[in-house]
């Protein structure tokens, strides 16, 4: 029974789509960074977005929660659809961001707030939780990422890896439907990155839907269910992780994977 689950796809085929991207385009001036992107994710799926720098993968992620407003197409997250050709209402934007939690390359913790306050304040302001409730949740999450003893510290007193785990806890505290990771380990030393990846792996195993823009090929191959390989604003290849990474079809994808795997 256990062997069967491990062999087959981790996420049941019948699971509903929680995220759909249709004909997504994004331009900065005349420069088109995303050219007609289409993909969908089922609940609980983990998708790694890989590709050379400048391929548009970070922009894609930032379009998903509208940190970058899309130039065309539409995005549906958990039943809420945002269309680029419609004026976005404030409530829709807030709704979208509540459904999507985001983790940045540079952590972006609030330096003037304690670790606990970093996690509890957004819960109070965005979800209207009471302070006691928010702090209880924050403590539980800190426990989960292995940083229970850091609650009263300030971010500057924590290492990069610890800060990133706190940032993950901060995003999780708002009970997002999807977690977006924008190169979460790129600013960290490789061994420090591992502690962050371990937290992410645990999160994936817990059933969280995750989109991870990453350079960590090992993570992409072993943790994610699917890989999107992007180049020049297109999705070049898409499919189960092992398939895309071991047997890339296009010459461009082969070239990229050969370069990163040999490092």
């Amino acid at each position: 029974m256990i062997a069967e689950i491990q062999a087959g796809p981790r996420v049941p085929e019948a699971a509903p789509n929680i995220l759909e991207v249709r004909n997504l385009r994004k331009s900065f001036g005349v420069h088109e960074v995303l050219k007609n992107i289409n993909f969908a994710m089922r609940k609980g799926e983990v998708v790694a977005v890989i590709g050379p720098s400048g391929s548009g993968k970070s922009t894609l992620l930032r379009c998903l929660n509208q940190l970058e407003p899309a130039s065309g197409g539409e995005i549906t997250i958990d039943g809420l659809t945002i269309r680029a050709d419609h004026q976005l209402r404030r409530a829709e934007l807030m709704g979208l961001r509540r459904k999507a939690g985001m983790v940045f390359q540079s952590f972006n913790l609030f330096p003037h707030l304690s670790v606990l306050r970093n996690i509890s304040l957004p819960q109070e302001r965005v979800l209207g939780r009471s302070r006691a409730e928010a702090e209880k949740r924050a403590h539980a999450l800190l426990e989960r990422v292995g940083l229970a003893d850091k609650a009263s510290q300030y971010p500057a007193r924590c290492s990069g890896g610890q800060q990133q785990r706190i940032a993950i806890a901060r995003a999780l505290a708002l009970d997002p439907q999807v977690m977006l990771f924008d190169e979460p380990t790129s600013a960290l030393d490789p061994e420090v990155g591992l502690e962050v990846l371990a937290v992410m792996k645990e999160l994936a195993e817990g059933g969280m839907t995750m989109v991870v823009v990453t350079h960590e090929m090992h993570f992409a191959e072993t943790v994610s269910d699917r890989v999107l390989l992007m180049a020049d604003g297109h999705i070049l290849e898409e499919g189960p992780s092992a398939e895309v990474m071991r047997n890339p079809k296009s010459e461009r994808a082969q070239r990229f994977l050969k370069a990163v795997m040999n490092r």
């Binding site: 940190l67 965005v126 708002l174």
Partner: peptide
């Protein structure tokens, strides 16, 4: 830093809260 504004945007803080707390 710009990242502070992006982080509070991504968390869904309102504009007033962003000013007041961040």
């Amino acid at each position: 830093p710009r990242g502070q504004i992006e982080a509070s945007d991504a968390l869904g803080l309102s504009f007033a809260d962003q000013l007041r707390f961040v």
